[in-house]
Design a protein around this nucleic acid. Structure first.
Lengths: 339, 339
DNA sequence: TTGAAAGCGCTAACAA
DNA sequence: TTGTTAGCGCTTTCAA
């Protein structure tokens, strides 16, 4: 067992063994380069004998980019975020990129972390947590690095965006509850502002107010099940005397709310009050909940983000684009039957 | 909007502006290097004026490693895995490393992916999915790259390991069910072998057989809620006539099982049958389930893995170590009261 | 198609 | 403490 790190074989070693020049080795490992089939074979044989592998760091220093794609995310252990990261990561790897996963602990970190990514000559950056400061996005653009923002507000920058439209989301949730017969609405949302989550809650509330003359509002300390359950439980039974339809801005909140309504307040869902969530996380379909919700198509979201990224890698001068992904109502057991 | 990637400022540009040599710039950005406070200030001023940032790729080419730590994981969207990745990622970033997250789609990919990581001069590799082939681990060792395996079987290699002891896990689950009064046991486990998951199921079954003369067994197609629910539901009511204690090898399986028992088979949990899960995922504590389970301390797991990695970064010649993390029984509502 | 030579941006050993 | 010099391993013109 040696303490020392053995010197790894270089293209030079391979060249020597194969009896060619180092640049031939480089070409042999560069897709689409001009190498005679025969020399290529010799080189591959020598390479595999020496256990040679191209040093991506050295390659990345020379070429356009390092093959690394930065992914900036937060609250990774949340069902939606975990799925997003999975759906972004897998295709990237399949395409030969290497995702660098960076989690910001506070919004203030975001800029610095993007900066650090740039130091790795990244091929692109995908941001799906807090909005990066304008300056960070400008720097990416200056460095020729494409950026895609997922569910971030317009920043007036070059970054492409993929969003879940807050207006459409709030409207769909409202329509669903209306169709199921609810007429006295309330909304449950986190107290901290975010583009899509509080955005759709606001859209819902605005619509309910306009059409039905009012909308109750319950706030949660954060986006967790626990916060939602606590919020509803402490609001108390009386708070729901005049409410028969509750829209929760995320499924996680909805599940906490359902448990609070049923277990803490002794109300019946959906008989006393109907509940609609948002996201269609896996847990929403679990038997004990069977939550009616709005599904956002995370596969499409990821695919779109990756496509935008690749388009920009090829050509980074198009104007910024913004796409909204599809929404689909999923009726389950927390609302009355609708036909 | 320019198509061209602007040339990024280099240490040379900063040096020129600050009126010093490039190596002074390098030192100014190297913690603990010998630079006069005054020159350092000049350099920082010039750097920030030019928007300079050190190129980690070039730095990584020169030095021991690139600051990237490879994390190999699979089924990222699973609660336990998502949490593990989060708990590994955050401290790494805080310490200035950059996690490269790679997900293997098939076990056969694992070797190649580790190989690819090595090409990035990684500072270390953490594997928490399928076991890497011996050859890949050897290559890491040859390259002087420390490897930590989480919940992987002994490979006879240099890699350190952090495990959840299967024997202890099975035994604890068994003891919990016994304490709650169950005496006719069964176990629910995935049909595909894994070190810790099927390991603890086997340990449980062996103990139940030895002490109580037998143990029923239900198999699931994979590790999902759905597979568990389907497995129990199709087993049918009669399958549980002679069972009053069910150990499910993971919480996700346990939640599917509980829903199947209650909703599909009309049995009462815990009155007809008591259920114990494993992991203590967040969902286990949700009101609708209140699952009795065994908590494995994922924070400790991650901390331990990172500590082992760092120790080996400093000195890679110690013999491989293996640590087991703590387990803790969590009694909730799917078992009878115990006092 | 191949070899030669010049860097990519940085660090580190050495000398001043 | 600073400047000088020599690479790290690779790609990429340019000639041959």
């Amino acid at each position: 067992m040696s303490t020392d790190k053995k010197r790894q074989p270089t293209s030079f070693d391979v060249a020597k063994l194969a009896g060619v020049h180092r640049s031939a080795v480089s070409r042999a490992f560069t897709p689409g380069a001009a190498v005679a089939e025969e020399t290529r074979k010799k080189i591959y044989a020598a390479a595999s004998e020496l256990n040679y592998r191209v040093n991506s760091i050295a390659r990345g220093l020379q070429s356009e980019h390092s093959g690394i794609v930065g992914i900036l995310a937060s609250r990774l252990d949340t069902p939606v975020r975990a799925k997003q990261v999975k759906l972004l990561t897998q295709p990237l790897i399949r395409d030969g990129f290497r995702p660098m996963l960076v989690t910001a602990e506070t919004p203030a970190d975001v800029g610095g972390l993007i900066d650090a990514m740039l130091g790795y000559n990244v091929a692109g950056v995908i941001v799906t947590s807090d909005s990066p400061p304008q300056r960070a996005i400008d720097e990416c653009h200056d460095a020729g690095v494409p950026v895609v923002l997922i569910n971030r507000a317009e920043t007036g920058a070059w970054a492409d965006r993929v969003i879940t439209d807050p207006e459409a989301s709030g409207r769909l949730a409202f329509d669903m509850l209306r169709r199921c017969g609810a007429s006295r609405m309330a909304v449950l949302q986190p107290e901290t502002q975010t583009f899509s989550v509080t955005g759709r809650a606001a859209a819902f509330a605005a619509l309910a107010t306009a059409r039905l003359g009012g909308c109750g509002r319950f706030l949660t300390a954060d986006q967790s099940y626990d916060a939602a359950r606590r919020s509803i439980a402490t609001a108390g039974h009386a708070a729901f005397d005049a409410v028969d339809g509750l829209f929760c801005a995320t499924d996680l909140l909805a599940l906490g709310a359902v448990d609070a309504l049923r277990l803490d307040l002794g109300l019946s869902v959906p008989n006393d009050i109907q509940v609609v969530g948002f996201d269609d996380i896996e847990q929403a379909s679990w038997g004990a909940y069977s939550l009616t919700t709005v599904r956002q198509d995370l596969e499409a979201q990821a695919q779109l983000a990756l496509r935008l990224l690749k388009v920009r890698m090829a050509q980074n001068d198009a104007p910024a684009q913004c796409f909204a992904i599809d929404l689909k109502p999923i009726f389950r057991g927390t609302t009355q039957n609708v036909d």
